[in-house]
Write a protein that binds this DNA or RNA. Structure first.
Lengths: 191, 191
DNA sequence: CGCTTAATATGATAAGCATCATATAACGAT
DNA sequence: ATCGTTATATGATGCTTATCATATTAAGCG
């Protein structure tokens, strides 16, 4: 073993992180292997030492993106009660910041419409992420509302995604504010 | 004038209809000019007699897709009162049928995530369609709820889009049913 | 019935991209 | 310091696709 034990694993992680950003920014099909490698500070040829093909990278990148935002949510809601955590979650997710930065946001909002057309492996990585997020929300909800988790996630993602279509920033912000209010209502959180 | 007056216009419309379906089915970037022309019963070369380039076709196709579903909604809610129309709209939009057929459904649900990356001309055709749909919903709502129209459309689109990520048909249907119930609540429609 | 012209088809070109074969470089053990 | 090995780079290859140049076909007119 000539290179350090961890060297290859480290570059793999660099590639993966670059991919997680690039896939959200440009979409799985429009992003190129060479482009991702360049973002990781490498050239395209070495790619196949780390992943068998582009599809495997995309699937791994989607998982990584979900993990990233999952860790972020966990960190920012640590030690909170259910309602507090839900309220904080809404304030992180349904925002202009999220609307304006798909590349570091939730993969659902970044990839929703093109994912159904991806390969089975990619779709399945995506579905795992979606179900995880729904599960996270359900854990915060009181028992009698747990069943709403999926629909709440859908409302959050839909708000961000539609707000991206609206070029007027104030109209977009109004949409997001309305959505936040309605979400809190559905979650049983006092306004 | 050798061909009939209307001949060229008719083929243009055939190409446009094929494009409106294909763009929703495969996305603006993954669909090919040749593929669309083939669906219209033509070969790729003649394309440039009808549109200056692919971008113009995509923009026109998105407008056409919004028009198609707009006409459909108008037809199916004709003569209804506001609440009746809203209820019917929810029952048309937030359904398994819509989840399973993006190619003939709402362009928001089919294209939301990849549209922000398109050219200005395409985005603007899309935005017009989104705002039109929001306006249609607003017209049906009572005055005190009109401001919610955008957020309601976002919830509907989000529900369909997230339900497409869930492979279990029953879980997907549950999400849609929850969304329909909540939407009616927000619209002030008795369940 | 042939001729003209608009509409469509055929075929070429060039660019972009995933993948792979081969070359080079970095590293640590000796 | 040198060598062998592993990681990365360079440079094809083949395929797909938008676009365009040129050829062919269809339809109505004289």
């Amino acid at each position: 073993m000539r290179y350090s034990e961890t060297h290859k694993e480290e570059t793999r992680r660099k590639v993966l992180k670059a991919a997680a950003t690039a896939v959200r920014a440009k979409g799985p099909d429009s992003v190129g292997v060479a482009e991702i490698m360049a973002h990781a500070g490498l050239t395209h040829g070495g790619f196949y030492a780390h992943f068998p093909n582009k599809e495997a990278l995309v699937a791994a990148a989607i998982t990584e993106a979900f993990d990233q935002s999952g860790r972020r949510f966990a960190r920012l809601t640590e030690g909170m009660s259910g309602p507090e955590a839900l309220s904080a979650f809404v304030d992180i997710y349904v925002t202009r910041e999220h609307r304006d930065h798909p590349e570091r946001g939730c993969p659902i909002a970044a990839l929703s419409s093109e994912l159904p057309r991806q390969s089975a492996a990619v779709r399945s990585a995506y579905e795992r992420g979606v179900l995880n997020l729904i599960g996270r929300v359900a854990r915060w909800l009181p028992d009698e509302r747990k069943a709403d988790a999926a629909s709440l996630v859908a409302e959050m993602a839909g708000s961000v995604v539609v707000s991206r279509a609206i070029s007027d920033p104030e109209a977009a912000e109004r949409l997001l504010a309305d959505a936040r209010r309605n979400l809190r209502l559905r979650m049983g959180i006092p306004q």
